[in-house]
Amino acid sequence: MSFLTIRNLSAELKGHGVPLLRRVSLQVAAGEVRGLVGESGAGKSMIGKAILGILPRAVAITGGEILLDGVDLLQLPPAQRRRRIGASAALIPQDPLTALNPSRRIGGQITDRLVDILGWQRARAEARARELLAEVQIAEPERVLRSYPHELSGGMRQRILIASAFAAEPRLIVADEPTTALDVTVQKQILKLIQAMQARHGTALLFVTHDLGVVSKVCQKLSVLYAGMVVEDTEVRPFFAGPKHAYSAALLAATPKYTDPAASLQPVPEAVIEAVRREVADADRRAGHG
């Protein structure tokens, strides 16, 4: 049984009827890492936001289910849904520079969920925070816990956000392009850290990224999105050996390779785009009739 199961999830822009997600289905088993890739606007971040209940107000879910440990989040009353998400899932956000509250100390931002939502004793939560900072290789955890975000570097803040995401031992973590906003030299370390933490804690991880290189290193499974529709859902290894879908293949071909950077910088061909668009339209039509 998968820890996270999404079935036929559809979402649209309120009042405009513009579909943002088209009957998306995917599963993440306990302890498994699934990559979610696609171009900008394909809806990959939208899926992560839908799971965590943080969709923008302008977006409405129009159908489908999000099962977290067998319970459909969309059927729960808001307060109950929030607590359930807070207790069993977490987010590693994209930009560490904006994801920490500038007027609160780091310590409180790690322990708040443990104390307020899970009802831990403050001392226990603080001990846990120290332990977590050590785990993400932050020296002087005591000082860092008392610091404000602006006193720390971007890489350091991302480590803190990773530590915070693992604080409540969630069963699922959504990592929303967690390395995109970082310095290239820091990216690798952070990626390794997320991998190590995931492996140690056995957390299911949904890794949202546009970087297939990252997927090949971190993930076991992979969903490729185009225009809010899953065009390929597969294991990572066979995918890199030879993707089934033409769009996935073109996306893979468009990924720069370190061996030959200039030669491989090619856009997804027009013909492929047209084909996948037709496919999306067909699927919409079928869903409309069904």
Partner: peptide
């Protein structure tokens, strides 16, 4: 709209908090 507010929502906090 800022990220840290959104992050706080994922922790289980409601609108008032």
């Amino acid at each position: 709209h800022l990220d840290y507010v959104t992050l706080s929502r994922t922790k289980g906090y409601g609108e008032n908090h």
